[in-house]
Design a protein around this nucleic acid. Structure first.
Lengths: 134, 134
DNA sequence: CTAATTGTAGACTTAATGTGTCTATAATAT
DNA sequence: ATATTATAGACACATTAAGTCTACAATTAG
């Protein structure tokens, strides 16, 4: 697990899409403006979300992005993995000694982290946000 | 929390020192050889361990490093923090919105990770390793 | 059909940082 | 004194995140 600014943009983008009326498309220009990031950079991130099957895109006038059916099951971890890929936080022992106890201890702790992030659903956060702000 | 190769070297160094007879000093040359890393680079890491109060150093012939009294209470997290400092894995919202729910969810998950790493003591791993290898 | 709108793709640049080297200096034992 | 060992800091290299730019494909409006 790894976290970069790109994932931050991705997570907030998912929130904005979840807050939008379903079946309404929203363009990258608006999404970028809300997050104070360039449209070109956010485009690359959105394309990853599309390719991972979480978001749908439509070209042309009045096109844009919307969440794909079934998105209510998506967790924070799903979004992170879509952007960053599956990268362990600690991977320096594998070549030297695959049974390294340090490695195992850290992997076990990381598993707890992943479990937590996988239980936090986008839809739950989005619902909470409706009562406050993003 | 962040993890780099430097922390990997630090953790393994702590293990080697723990495996050594107490009150015996071991030089950076030997520690570096065991981990296949340069002495100069490992020196910098050892200096951080000394400054954080986990390790003692003695200059001169037959000098070297040994664990400082009380080391049995040290956890994996203590070593990580000594090398990396206290760095949250996610810190992109603070300026924009300190109440960001995404931020809070990730911080909460990270807390679980830190708790686990703080409960894993160096001495426990070292004892286990005596029965296997490092 | 044409033109405007919107997403996709990829090369490229820049900035930050982890990793490591090199040299000089300080401290200690023989 | 001299050899040994740790400390300090400047320096260089490699990787990668972050962001820009340009060209192209897809779709809608008129």
């Amino acid at each position: 697990m790894k976290l970069t600014k790109a994932t931050n943009y991705a997570l907030h983008t998912m929130m904005f899409l979840a807050a939008n009326p379903p079946n309404a498309h929203i363009g990258v220009a608006k999404l970028a403006e809300q997050q104070d990031v360039s449209t070109t950079y956010l485009s690359k991130i959105l394309t990853k979300l599309v390719k991972s099957g979480m978001v749908e895109s439509v070209s042309g006038a009045n096109g844009g992005y919307k969440l794909k059916a079934g998105w209510e099951k998506l967790s924070i971890l799903d979004v992170i993995n879509a952007i960053e890929g599956l990268t362990p936080i600690f991977e320096y022992c594998h070549s030297h000694n695959p049974d390294c106890l340090i490695q195992k201890a850290i992997e076990s702790a990381e598993a707890k982290l992943l479990h937590e992030l996988n239980q936090t659903l986008i839809v739950d956060l989005a619902n909470k946000m409706k009562k406050t702000s993003i």
